[in-house]
Nucleic acid binder design. Sequence first.
DNA 1: TCCATTTGACCGAG
DNA 2: CTCGGTCAAATGGA
Length: 359
Amino acid sequence: MEEILSLIFRGCNLTRDLESKLPSLTNNPSLLASSCDDIVRAFSRASDLLKAQGPPQPPPPPELEAGGVQEWLTTSHTQAMAVAMLALDPFQGQLFSDKNPFDVRLLTTREAEGGSSSSVRARGGGELQGGEGSDAGKSPVTQQRSRKRKDGEERHTIRAAAPRIGNTEIPPDDGFTWRKYGQKEILGSRFPRSYYRCTHKSFYGCNARKQVQRLDDDPNTFEVTYCGHHTCLMSSPTSSMPPPQPPVATTTGPEPPLEVEATQHPLPTSPPTRRRHSMELESDTPTELGLRMPGSFNVAGSVSLSTTAATTTQAPGPSEPSQPARDGREVEWPVADLADVMFNSGSSSSEMDLFFGPM
DNA sequence: TCCATTTGACCGAG
DNA sequence: CTCGGTCAAATGGA
């Protein structure tokens, strides 16, 4: 067991190390990849050893004491991290799904364009970045109104439990700032789908969007589909995470390529001023992971992730997390077992501090 | 006054 | 024609 704990510690330290260096590594994919590999190996080995020791313990009860460190660690933190990593690079969803040392059950697939048969799959959704002009001249904003989805546009779907305390209508906070721009009743769905885009779309030309919908069979679970990448500065999910940036900074946006330094110390005057509403479901400023309120969302402590619209409705819910996707590329890793060991076997808060630093 | 949300209308793909 | 996605006017809150 000592070896296992040692491996877990190592993985956590590597993770923390990577996190701290992330801003400087975003332009160094190879180094980033090797760091990820190291982390993956550490947790993978630990997981293997744990499995070899005996049957996995049952997952922790979904209802944890509100405000508890464990809950926080297993909910908002991991969700925001997962989402942030996906936003940073969709393929890193694989990394997270692979070895997330916490509780997150991540399902990751790569979107196969045109793939699939989702009952609620978008028919024509998405926007083009100018230039397609498929709807010739119906309005002065023709380019903006093109709804044809860009070929290969990444779509990542996650499932997150709705908060069970407070307003359960609020979709989970993923650390980005979103502005709702529409809501539609979806055929065959009991709940409407809400459409959000990045609050800073106009300012930074950020094209990130997301769709939020409750699952028919599990109203306590939101299915959130992310489209496009954040190119804005202020929607950084966390202070320790740089905002998701494409490998090559866009040259079409109104802002010059963003400096890493700026991501950590955003100028307060840069973005449009905005007010906080008590019901606001987003957080704009880079937020310390540790400062998130535990009850913000996902008390269930389970998330699935996929990066394809094709599997949006195929992705197994929390109640059946191990069902593979139809395309066969979706994978799941029972890291919950590992998380269980970490969080339910008497890990002290000091150990948690070791993992994540003082909150 | 500014910004977010709501909601009916519009658009395009199938 | 249907339906999902988006637009944009109306509305409300700070």
